[in-house]
Design a protein around this nucleic acid. Sequence first.
RNA 1: UGGGGCGUCGACAAACGGCAAGUCAGGAGUUUUUGGAGCUCCCAUGUGGAGGUUCGAAUCCUCCCGCCCCAGCCA
Length: 567
Amino acid sequence: MNNPEIPKHSDFIRDIVTEDVRNNKYKGSVQTRFPPEPNGYLHIGHSKSICLNFGIAKEFGGLCNLRFDDTNPSREDVEYVDSIKEDVRWLGFDWGDRMFYASDYFEQLYQYAVELIKIGKAYVCDLNADQMREYRGTLTEQGKESQYRNRSVEENLDLFQRMRAGEFPDGSHTLRAKIDMTSGNINMRDPVIYRVMRQTHHRTGDKWRIYPMYDFAHCFSDSIEKITHSICTLEFEDHRPLYDWFLDQLGVYHPQQIEFARLNLSHTVLSKRKLIQLVEEGYVSGWDDPRMPTIAGIRRRGYTPESIRNFCERIGVAKRDSTVEMPLLEYCIREDLNKSASRVMAVLRPLRVVIENYSENQTEELDAINNPEDPGMGMRKVPFSRVLYIEQDDFRENPPKQFFRLAPGREVRLRYAYFIKCTGVVKDEQTGEVIELRCTYDPTTRGGDAPDGRKVKATLHWVSAGHALNAEVRLYDYLFTKATPGEDSGDFKTDINMDSIKALKNCSVEPGLAGAAPGSRYQFERLGYFCVDPDSSEQKLVFNRIVTLKDTWAKVEKTIKKNEGPK
RNA sequence: UGGGGCGUCGACAAACGGCAAGUCAGGAGUUUUUGGAGCUCCCAUGUGGAGGUUCGAAUCCUCCCGCCCCAGCCA
């Protein structure tokens, strides 16, 4: 993209960037970065940041780097860098040849630290962690200065070099910035900038025995990469004075840090700590469990990258803490799939229907539309025969007033097929459960219209029992029963929805679905959007329900029940 | 009781001293061979509160109230 686009929806960050470009700040260039720490899987909250950073770069004719903030080898791993790359790519963004690691800059960062020592702005401190905490003060009390604060430049240089050389054990020494122990901003109370950590790093191996802290590494990494706008979340607002301080001390290229409110989503959790608990304690099957808000989970569930990008655009960007309701995300995937997904008929809970006046040996092929929203997607044939399955939910022996579907004596349409009328109900002698319906069909209604113009109030989906494929369909509900998990109890796990997955193993789908590839998405007519799971095989299809269709009847039924309730 | 932020509809979110956008959710209707989709309409005499400035305030000023973040050698 050579020419900047006019952003469709602006926000306060784009306003700042627009202004900066207009004023020719940074020579009018725009360079952003997405800087994950490779210590966990990306989730939908990260996609907000990804869309923001890559989106702004694209809109303003700039570039966005992918940079791994890998300054703490004790918690990071290549497993995560691989998943992060895959997820960003899947979302549709391209960092070109600009994939960087903070660890690429370790030598340069070390030199910057030496510079800081030389100008008397950093010192080696021998305080241990407990002492440092004590010296730091509290939110309301000032800190006090370390007795090591006034070491000579020479001594600091010597000690720092020996820290690097591995002469000291973990935790024995730190390099600290010399700022102000009385600052109201705790980040400015002589923060640690290097710690001794004798840990093998996933990229630099055993080369380093000291590692820089976030505040020190991040601003200089941004500076080295000539980032113009360093966009991060609100909790780093307090760190901005430090970010600026480091860069100012050394007089190097100075990007601008801008903070925005991270995404919160109702009925789920978006913190690495909580997500890892769900995985490790077995509440879900893994990082890519379709109920997880991770990019990997959402992808397996069947969400499209387009729908996620769209979601990120709709939620906006601001500085106010907020929680977006899950139905907005669901709206975004329905909107996308309504236009693009092939329609197909699938019966989740089959109820056997015998068409008594349809001959036993006959089969015919009926024409069905693949997508009414897009005629270009064409037509297909679906087989019809004497024995069919319909949805159990589509029959009621004693229908409430607003129930339009099949009931004894009532006529309905089978989609793309015929009108049928229910003439009998077969029940299990033991349980009384309805196990079969006897019906008749009207041969003149082939295709679904009656020549005499009579109407039916419902159209049902169905499959031909003798032709259908067996499939497993996994239905998902919210992972948490409360919009804000743990709001009442303080522990998010008390609100885990123990009924968030239902695997239906005896579903029947139309034969055209044979061989459907993992990842392909369909609308099961009247039910929702479904995606073929990687667990699927030639022998057995497995589908994930991405999201239901909007269900007006369910809503009506709910109010019926509510009104009957108090009696 | 230190420092930094933030308060506009049930949920998001515009507005940049001049008629409180839009979206999701919700409601009503229309249409329909998906109770889907579409289309139409409704949903903030009011912007946390109280004062003030102004012809005019969500916007500027003062005070108050509420919420979030910070006391890792995490990011």
